[in-house]
Structures are given as C-alpha cells and as structure tokens.
C-alpha cells in the first residue's frame, strides 16, 4: 500500500538528464516521493489510462502529482494535459507543467487546459533545487490532496 504522506509522481520528461536532475533534486531535498518516469506523451497517457504495457493497473499506481514537460515526442505535453483534464477519473490529479521555455502562448494554453500550475525549469542549479523543494513541500504538505 502506498504511504499517504508520500508523493507518487508521474514524471513525463523526454530528456533523460532532466529527469535525473529532477529525481536527484527531490531525493536531495528529502521529499518523500516515488517517481514514475515516462519519456513521451503516448507513454504517459498509456500509463494513466492503464493501456498497453501499463495494463496491469495494480503494478502501476495512480499518481497524486503529474510533472509534465511540454515538448514531448509523439504526443506533446499540451495534448497529454488536455486528455487528462477531459478524463473524469484523472482530472482531479494535480498536473504541474514543468518546462524549459517560458512561452506566454504555452502558459495560456496550459491553463486553458486546466493545468494546476506552470513552472519553468530554472537554469541555475541552486534555484532548481529550491524549486523542487518548494514543489515537493507544497504538494506534499501544504496542499490538501484529493488523490489518496
């Protein structure tokens, strides 16, 4: 059974290095988390909808936080976001867009698709760490999480 005080994060990130950075940062900040990493939009949707390789639902628990990059192969981040927020059983999962570019157009579109938050990956290492800490604390401790 999953620890209730732990973040089950679905990390949708095509860049291996970035995924590693995020996971290590979370680890470093001692955020209790379990990260499921997928590298493209199609994989993310398959995971969330329990399709394809992720059809054994028990093995792949539903996350209580989704970190979503926007530029993704196959199905891009906005496409994934749109499907999540349209799905009755998924739309309550807090979905945070975490991307490397700050495009106004992207911000607008993301919120239009009901993104819960829009974060830009900081270039600076310290800031990156701080963001991850805040993110973890916020979603783990401050925010009342609907997904248990």
């Amino acid at each position: 059974m999953m620890d209730e005080s732990m973040l089950n994060i679905l990390l949708v990130e095509d860049n291996e290095d970035h995924a590693e950075l995020i996971m290590r940062s979370l680890e470093e900040q001692q955020i209790k988390s379990h990260v499921i990493h997928v590298t493209d939009g199609e994989q993310a949707l398959n995971y969330l909808f329990g399709r394809g390789e992720y059809s054994e639902v028990e093995k792949y628990p539903r996350p209580n936080l989704i970190l979503l990059d926007l530029r993704l192969p196959k199905v891009d981040g906005l496409g994934v976001l749109k499907e999540i927020k349209q799905a009755e059983e998924l739309k309550i999962i807090p979905t945070v867009v975490l991307t490397s570019s700050e495009s106004e157009n992207d911000i607008y579109r993301a919120y239009n698709y009901y993104a819960n938050s829009f974060l830009v990956k900081p270039m600076d290492f310290q800031q990156f760490n701080e963001l991850m800490l805040k993110l973890g604390r916020y979603w783990l401790k401050c925010n009342a999480n609907p997904v248990r």
Binding site: H18, E28, S101, F125
Partner: peptide, 24 residues
C-alpha cells in the same frame, strides 16, 4: 524561435544542473 529557446535551454539546464551536482 520557440524551439530554439526551448531546445537550447534544455542542454544548458542539464549542464548547469549536473555541474551543481558534481560540486556537491
């Protein structure tokens, strides 16, 4: 321009991030 800003930032984030980790 979007691509450039995104895709050029991407390796920089990696470089800076891992440099930081290296130092740690």
């Amino acid at each position: 321009t979007y691509t450039v800003s995104h895709d050029l930032r991407s390796p920089l984030i990696t470089i800076k991030g891992f440099s930081g980790l290296l130092l740690q």
